[in-house]
Design a binder for these strands. Structure first.
Length: 330
DNA sequence: TACAAACCTTCTCT
DNA sequence: AAGAGAAGGTTTG
């Protein structure tokens, strides 16, 4: 007997184009997408292509506009302009923030001269928890490869574009399934394999994604409490917790104190810390509190700008650059 | 409470 | 050519 069902294309791949007014001084796609906040964006022609909100986005910009193509299982009721605008927090005026930071911090302008248009991305919290667990003692290139591996091993294909497959980020449940740690060990995740598997299992026990979402500022969680909860997860210490708070829980006062911010703090703000070689929890606390006082309620955003100015400072890394180019030529 | 040392792997520089 | 040192840290003793 033939059962006739209406055809429903649940996973039909569709494409939509759009354009949002946004000046290039408010947003620099390159430093924002590839400065170490997200690990899922890659160069594509004169723009960038990556995955978020379960779709593949291709972004370009000019002086006045941000243009996008979004591909995947698109649905009619969603406003993709708004989804992209929310991702970049385009409702926040970076220019106004910078004016305040220049006024309160005599060192800030130097950073701004090197880099502008850094925005704090509003990312998915599950993706951020596991991505930043991968980030410990690691570099951006390798982290990106590991995040990609998590997606292909434990999640689903969104669609295929120009012969390349794109995947969504795995669910907590998928990462909590059997044998995840061993599989990740085989993929050279090292000691992070155990952190990922155990954090996933831990999160399932706590209530999954909902538990994480309840730490969001919009759900009335405080920064201090969100951070306190996050560091109970294996592989999540103060720095990773601050990354999660800042980039996916709306706590813009969170300041991840990594080795670069530690160097900057010693050089320009807290010279008495020069005697210390590594960031201890106490020093993390001291630097965070000092910079929050200096930069105000969006201090984490200022931190991101200062951080990007440092790592993108060409004058500070001429040696390795010259060496690379010389090797290529010969 | 406060430090080291260990932890996995990759890449770079010497 | 081989090995130390660092890479946007966390855990353990």
């Amino acid at each position: 007997m033939n059962i006739i069902r209406p055809k429903i294309y649940i996973n039909e791949v569709r494409t939509k184009h759009g354009k949002i007014a946004c000046s290039s001084s408010e947003l620099d796609l390159g430093v924002t997408l590839k400065g170490g906040q997200s690990f899922r964006w890659f160069d594509h022609d004169d723009g960038y292509r990556g995955v978020f909100d379960g779709c593949v986005w291709t972004l370009t910009q000019n002086d006045t506009h941000l243009s996008y193509t979004v591909q995947g299982p698109l649905v009619d009721y969603k406003n993709y302009d708004k989804i992209l605008s929310d991702y970049f927090r385009l409702d926040v005026c970076l220019h106004d923030l910078c004016k305040k930071w220049i006024a309160s911090d005599q060192h800030f302008k130097k950073s701004l001269n090197k880099t502008n248009g850094v925005r704090i991305l509003n990312q998915d919290v599950v993706e951020n928890v596991f991505s930043f667990i991968c980030s410990s003692n690691n570099n951006i290139q390798r982290i990106s490869g590991m995040v990609q591996k998590l997606c292909t091993l434990f999640s689903e294909k969104i669609c295929s574009i120009e012969g390349k497959d794109y995947y969504s980020f795995p669910s907590i449940e998928a990462l909590a399934s059997t044998d995840v740690e061993n599989k990740l060990r085989e993929e050279k995740f090292g000691y992070r394999a155990g952190y990922i598997a155990n954090t996933a299992k831990h999160l399932v026990q706590l209530g999954g994604k909902e538990w994480l979402s309840n730490l969001h500022k919009e759900n009335n969680a405080s920064y201090v409490d969100a951070r306190k909860q996050l560091v109970t997860l294996p592989g999540v210490g103060p720095k990773v917790a601050d990354c999660i708070c800042l980039m996916s829980l709306g706590h813009l006062e969170a300041i991840p104190v990594d080795t670069h911010i530690f160097q900057i703090a010693k050089a320009s703000y807290l010279p008495h810390l020069k005697q210390y070689k590594t960031v201890t929890p106490k020093i993390h606390e001291e630097i965070g509190n000092y910079l929050r006082e200096l930069w105000g309620p969006s201090a984490g955003w200022a931190q991101a700008l200062v951080f990007c100015a440092k790592i993108n400072d060409v004058t500070a890394c001429t040696t390795s650059r010259n060496k690379r180019e010389r090797t290529k030529e010969s």
